[in-house]
Amino acid sequence: MGWFSNAPTANRIQNTNTIAACVALLEANGQVLNEVNTFASNQINRGQQLSAQAFSVQGAGSQLGRELQAAIGSLGALKTNTSQQLDELGQLCHNMELLIQQFDVPRGARTINASGRDIARVAVHDTSLVLANLLVLEQNSRPDIVRSVQTIDRADTVLNQGNANQAGLNLPGMNFRFQ
C-alpha cells in the first residue's frame, strides 16, 4: 500500500498537512528571528556610536561609556544566538525540502526507506527541537534586551537630550509561533 502510488489517501493527506504545518512554523519563526537579529544589530550600532560619544565627552573613565559597552556586549551575545538559531532553522528548512521531495515520490522509489508517517514524525521531532530552542532564547533573552536597550536609551537622553531616540518603545516582539 503506497509503495507504487501517491494516491491521496486520508493518511497521506494527514502526513502532508503535518509536514506543511512544520514548514509554516519554521518560516514564520525565521521571520521573527530575522526581526530580532536586525533590531539587535541596529541597537549595537547605536550603542557603539553613543559609547564613542560618551568616552569623548566624559573621558576615558566614563561610567556611561562602560555601561554602554556592557549593553553592546549583551546585545552582541543575543545577535550571536539569533544567528545560530537562524543557521539551524535554515538547515532544518533545507532538510524539510529534502523530506518533502522524498514524500512526493511513491515509497518504492524513495532513496530513504521511510513511510509517510515516519517522514512526518521526523518533521515534527526536528521542528519541536527548534521550537524548544526558540522558547529558551525568548525566556533567557528578553530581560537582557530590555535592560540593554534601556541603558542605550538612557545614554542617548543624557548625551543628546532633546534629540534622543527611544528604541525601548519599539522592542522586538519575539512572538514565536509554537503551534
Rank of each mutant, 00 (worst) to 15 (best):
K79N: 10
L64A: 02
Q14R: 12
G65P: 01
Q84D: 14
L26N: 08
G65F: 03
L86N: 05
T38Y: 09
N45R: 12
Q49R: 10
P143G: 10
A164Q: 11
I100N: 06
F39D: 15
L68Q: 04
R110K: 09
V36T: 05
G2A: 13
N133C: 04
Q150E: 11
T127R: 03
L92P: 03
L25Q: 15
V158I: 12
E27K: 15
Q58Y: 12
Q14W: 14
Q49K: 11
L129V: 11
R177I: 12
A7F: 12
A123G: 09
L89F: 06
R117Y: 09
E88V: 00
A20S: 12
N175M: 02
Q31K: 13
L75H: 01
R46N: 05
L33Y: 06
V36Y: 00
L92I: 07
R177W: 01
G76W: 04
V124Y: 06
A40W: 02
V158E: 11
Q179W: 07
A24Q: 10
F178Y: 14
G47K: 04
N170G: 07
S148Y: 05
A60D: 15
F55P: 07
F103G: 04
G47F: 07
I119P: 01
S128D: 08
N45D: 15
W3A: 11
F55V: 13
T80H: 01
L64N: 01
L137Q: 08
Q48S: 15
L25I: 04
A155E: 06
D153P: 09
N163F: 14
A40S: 13
G116I: 00
L89I: 11
F103H: 05
N160P: 02
N170F: 14
R12V: 10
S41H: 07
M1L: 12
M1R: 13
T16I: 03
S51T: 05
F103L: 04
F4H: 11
E138M: 04
Q63C: 01
S51L: 09
G61S: 13
V105F: 03
E67T: 07
A7H: 10
M96C: 00
P8G: 10
D126K: 13
L131C: 14
Q102P: 03
G59I: 09
A40Y: 03
I119C: 00
I19R: 06
N17W: 13
R177G: 05
G65N: 01
L131V: 08
L89K: 03
I119F: 06
N45T: 13
E67A: 10
N42Q: 12
L159I: 05
G65E: 00
A70E: 12
A164Y: 12
Q85E: 15
S115A: 10
L134S: 07
R12S: 11
Q43Y: 01
G90K: 08
